[in-house]
């Protein structure tokens, strides 16, 4: 304990603080890009998944296989797989890019499912009424289904954002300079693991907690609005 107190001034030097702040930025960026892409592409997947046309059947099958696969492979394994695939095809050796692409692909699978179950939570009667009034599938989604479904989609989506802030810790395994990797470097430099890992635990908490609170707040608010 004494050693720890002695170490603290040496640990929180300006250099280290900037170093950790940058790493925190990388963690945040990875998550934010992943969620943004996940929401837009996942939304598209959900929309195509609910189509009925026989011509789109191959697309629907592809979407089902895609979501099943990436929700059943550990993030770490997907990450390493993409890492090595990128090494072979030699498009880029930018580690951040590889991690971002992996996060986007997985986020798309998960958020696509969240959006799809949001769409499914809307009563069939709304679809019937819209169809009888000549709304097209896309008009029905835009005017009627999404304006109602977002209340069902947002709370689990926030839970998912938090999950991804935490899962990006695994990007340290391919050498992306995010929070966990930063802690490992500090630890290797001789700072105590208690301090290095303890600090980033707090930093992760600072990133995640506000989202957690906001998500729970919204869940409560939307639930009470609906009744």
């Amino acid at each position: 304990m004494e050693r720890l107190i002695e170490e603290i001034p040496n640990f929180f030097t300006i250099w280290n603080v900037i170093f950790l702040a940058k790493a925190m930025g990388v963690t945040f960026l990875l998550t934010a890009i992943g969620c943004l892409v996940g929401f837009s592409v996942g939304g598209l997947l959900a929309i195509f998944r609910k189509t009925k046309s026989i011509y789109l059947l191959p697309i629907r099958i592809f979407i089902i296989i895609y979501t099943e696969i990436f929700r059943r492979v550990p993030f770490l394994v997907s990450l390493l797989l993409f890492f090595y695939v990128f090494q072979i095809i030699k498009i880029s050796d930018n580690l951040f890019l590889i991690a971002t692409i992996t996060v986007c692909i997985i986020a798309t699978a998960y958020i696509g499912e969240i959006i799809r179950s949001g769409i499914e939570s809307i009563n069939q009667t709304q679809w019937d009424a819209a169809a009888a009034m000549n709304f097209s599938y896309y008009q029905t989604l835009r005017e009627i289904i999404f304006p109602q479904a977002w209340k069902v989609i947002l709370p689990p989506a926030f839970g998912f954002f938090i999950m991804f802030i935490k899962d990006t810790a695994l990007a340290s395994q391919i050498g992306v300079m995010e929070l966990t990797f930063a802690a490992k470097i500090l630890n290797n430099k001789g700072f105590s693991p208690l301090l290095s890992f303890g600090t980033i635990l707090i930093l992760y908490f600072i990133l995640s907690f506000p989202l957690d609170r906001f998500g729970k707040f919204m869940e409560k608010k939307l639930a009470s609005n609906r009744n």
Partner: peptide
């Protein structure tokens, strides 16, 4: 609950594995 659900499991295990020996 708040602590464990808002921090990465990987870092929690790092902590147990590397910091507890201290």
């Amino acid at each position: 609950v708040t602590f464990f659900t808002n921090t990465p499991q990987l870092v929690q295990i790092y902590f147990l594995f590397f910091a507890l020996p201290e």
